[in-house]
Write a protein that binds this DNA or RNA. Structure first.
Lengths: 118, 118
DNA sequence: ATAGTATATGATCAGATACTCATATATAAT
DNA sequence: ATTATATATGAGTATCTGATCATATACTAT
């Protein structure tokens, strides 16, 4: 057994060294983590899934999810910040839509994974 | 403007009805949410990414991530429960590996998404 | 049996998160 | 300007989460 410079145990030094070599940069880990976090909440997931088909406004999403419009708005802000959705204004109504085909692909892949689980 | 049976506002009833019709079942929402949650934490993400290449034991992962072996073990339990990783025992050492090609695909898709973001 | 090694698990706790409520902003209509 | 509608935002809060520490378990070797 070997020791690294922090005192933690290492059984297979070559594996650890190799893994360190190809490890994702910290910034990328953080970014991917945030991306998946966006999909990790039931409310956001349902919003993203609804928007796959057509744009929707805040209050319709609120009715669909049966949570307050404020809650929907907070979640949409997060999704906007992550550049997963965008909106267009028509009068006082904001219509939200998916910004990126990858959103749909990620959802599809997750569904495929689950449905093959049997 | 219309009202649903819960009193919330609805601007486009046809959109809400349509979205309700194709909505994911609650159980599936929960399952997908949990799947993405597994990828949403930096430590688990780094574990999964490391295991893409080769199996690794708990203490090597602990050295790689620079968190306690206990923390790694807790995260691995979660990943085991979600059937994303599995292990084989050799003496006292447990070697963990990815259980499913979808894990790799999801990671690849996320990376693709980020790198196309420019 | 005893001691040592590798991992698992339970308790605990600080920080993150997802809602609600109250309030603010932006557009429209009178 | 005033009022109404649609959404956004800040504060507050209950819950969830991800780590550590202490302890338990599983296997090995003597």
């Amino acid at each position: 057994m070997e020791q690294d410079n922090c005192g933690s145990r290492i059984i297979h030094l070559e594996k650890v060294v190799g893994a360190r070599g190809r490890a994702l940069p910290a910034a990328e880990v953080e970014a991917i983590s945030q991306l998946f976090k966006a999909f990790a909440d039931p409310s956001r997931l349902r919003i993203l899934h609804a928007l796959r088909v057509e744009e929707m406004c805040v209050c319709d999403l609120s009715a669909l999810l049966e949570i307050s419009e404020s809650a929907v708005s907070h979640q949409l802000r997060l999704l906007r910040t992550l550049r997963l959705v965008t909106n267009r204004r028509d009068g006082t109504v904001l219509y939200y839509r998916l910004l990126d085909a990858h959103v749909t692909e990620l959802l599809d892949l997750a569904l495929l994974h689950l449905r093959e689980e049997k």
